[in-house]
Every structure is written in C-alpha cells, then in structure tokens.
Amino acid sequence: MTQQPKVLIFDSGVGGLSVYKEIVARLPQLDYYYLFDNAAYPYGELERQTLIERVERLVSAMVAKLKIDLVVIACNTASTIVLPKLRAILSIPVVGVVPAIKPASSLANKAVGLIATPATVQREYTHDLIRDFSQNKPVEMLGLTRLVDIAEEKLRGKSVCIEEMTQLLEPLIGKVDVAVLGCTHFPLIKEEIQSVLTEQVMLVDSGLAIARRVQELLAVEFGQGERGKREIYSSATPWQEDALNSALSKLGFSPVRPFPLEI
C-alpha cells in the first residue's frame, strides 16, 4: 500500500479546523495531524519575536517527529509574520492563510467588510492587501477578539447568542455586500454571522483556496484511496476537554494528545 502524504495543520486554537474541513473534503485519503498552541492563545496578543520563536520551534518539532510532508499555518496572525522564516528552515511546502481581500473585492458592488482579529486589522500586511487589491472598493474593517472565543465555545457545545453577535457586527450591518472572514475561527460560526448580516451579504474565506493549493503542491488525486489518520495535539491541557473531544470525534479525530515542548 502506498504511503499517503502527511499534512500538519497548525493554529493557536481550534479555528484551523475550518481549514481542515475544506482540505479533508477534497483529500480524505491523506494523514492529518493538527497542533494547536493553546498555551499561548490568543496569538494576537504575543510580541512579534515571541510568536516567531514559538511557531518555529513547535512546527519544526512536529515536522521532525512525524515526518510531515506539508505544513498549513491555519492562522492569519501567524501567517503574516512567520511564513518567511518557516519556509527558510523547512525543506517541505508551507501554506499560509491571508484575508481573502482580493476575491472579495472582485465580488463586491458596494463595499467589502473585513471581519478579523484586532491584530490582523492592524497589521501592515493587511493594509498592503487592501491597497493592492481593493483600490476601487471601500473596505470596512472590524477587529473582534470576542468572535474567536465564541467560535471556541460553539465547538464545545455552547449555543451562540445572536443578540450579542448583532451587537458585535453592528458596524457592518447594511454597509457592505461582501464580508471577508479574516480569521480561521470565523467559518465555525458562519451561519450565525450570515444570519446577522443577512443573506444579501456574501461571506468569503480562504478555506477552499488553501485546500486547492494543498492538492496542487502534493500532486494527489481528488478523494482517492482509503481514509487517512486523524491525530490532534495541544501544547497545554484544553479547557472543557471532554466537550472538545466530543466535537473532534465527529470530525474523525482521536482525543487530544499533549505535545510537551519547553519554549
């Protein structure tokens, strides 16, 4: 039996599972390993150099330990800072995520909304994307840390308060016709965001584009072969671990395993 490629998906929390879902829908035969650095969650509050060092050491250790063939950095904050360094030290492909400003701008008639973390909204990289790809469409930026927590809570079975979501998203209501989900956590609460912004607003994220890029880089067939491995690791004991493991089992993962690393 031919060994399937091994893919590592990395994030500070469970947001990268939205990217995993898109990739596994196309390529269920691959072996997937997910690592979330919850010991340092949320990444948006870390100093730049601290973030670079953590991601470099964690990802490098996992790549060596599991003989990974491709890495997906499923975190906008980390991607905008760490990708050049990771690509310099690893000999395998590293795929990152960036806010889908370019496709959103081509779809918008009125204005684009960017829903992201405060760190992503403030980052120079994001402003460069807007300058390069959305010159003719205004971009309304909304930085929300609370939405990240809501997505983490929803995955563990907590219902989402639509009234709170409406208050959080109020600055965009009625002002945009396309909204970019600029954090990998946000597709996990896509239905709730859609209900608040209404069906007239198109929601755009990077998940499908990443899945296509992974398939292209690994040169594998769409959905061919038996189902691969699904393992998930964390850098600290997850909160509400039992509820999290229940949700993860539905995605095909075994229970979360500790990945101790002194950093």
Rank of each mutant, 00 (worst) to 15 (best):
R87V: 09
F259Q: 07
N38Y: 09
T117K: 00
Y20H: 05
T184I: 06
P84Q: 11
E241T: 07
R57K: 15
L58M: 12
A78M: 10
Y34S: 01
A219Q: 14
K6A: 07
V160H: 10
E164K: 11
G252M: 07
S159E: 15
L203M: 05
L208C: 15
S60G: 09
I73N: 00
E226A: 15
R156H: 08
A151W: 02
I68W: 07
V176L: 10
I162P: 06
K190F: 00
T198I: 12
V72M: 03
T80R: 08
L203A: 05
V7R: 00
L261C: 10
S18L: 12
L17D: 03
R156W: 05
R54K: 13
V14F: 01
I92D: 01
I210L: 11
L155H: 04
V256A: 04
P118L: 02
E199V: 14
D11V: 08
F253T: 04
V19M: 10
S12P: 03
I89G: 12
R131W: 09
L114C: 10
T50E: 11
E56R: 14
E163K: 11
T145I: 13
V14A: 02
L30T: 00
R230A: 12
T80C: 07
T80W: 02
N38Q: 11
K229W: 09
P42D: 09
K250L: 13
A40M: 13
L261E: 09
V176F: 03
A39G: 05
T80E: 09
K250A: 11
K85Y: 11
S234E: 10
P42Q: 06
A108E: 00
Y41K: 04
A243P: 00
Q3I: 12
L51Q: 04
V82F: 02
R54G: 01
R123W: 08
I52C: 10
Q240K: 15
E56G: 03
E56L: 13
I23K: 08
A119G: 04
E262L: 09
A179W: 00
Y233G: 09
E199L: 10
N38M: 07
A100T: 04
D132C: 13
S105A: 15
K65E: 14
G143F: 01
A78C: 06
L8F: 05
V139C: 08
K154G: 03
K158Y: 14
G15N: 05
V71T: 04
E231L: 12
T198Y: 00
L66W: 14
S234A: 15
T2L: 15
D128P: 06
S79Q: 08
R213V: 14
L107S: 03
V63Q: 01
V214W: 01
Y41N: 06
V63F: 02
I130H: 07
V148W: 01
Y20R: 04
I68T: 10
S195W: 00
D205Q: 03
E221A: 11
G13Y: 02
S18C: 11
S249M: 12
G252I: 03
A151H: 07
T50P: 03
S79K: 03
E163M: 06
A236P: 00
T77W: 06
L70Y: 02
V214A: 07
V14G: 01
I130T: 05
P255M: 10
K102V: 03
L107M: 13
P238N: 12
L107C: 05
E262G: 14
G225M: 05
K6R: 15
F36E: 08
R87S: 06
E226Y: 12
R156E: 12
L261R: 06
E56M: 13
A88G: 14
R123C: 05
Y20K: 02
E56P: 08
L114T: 04
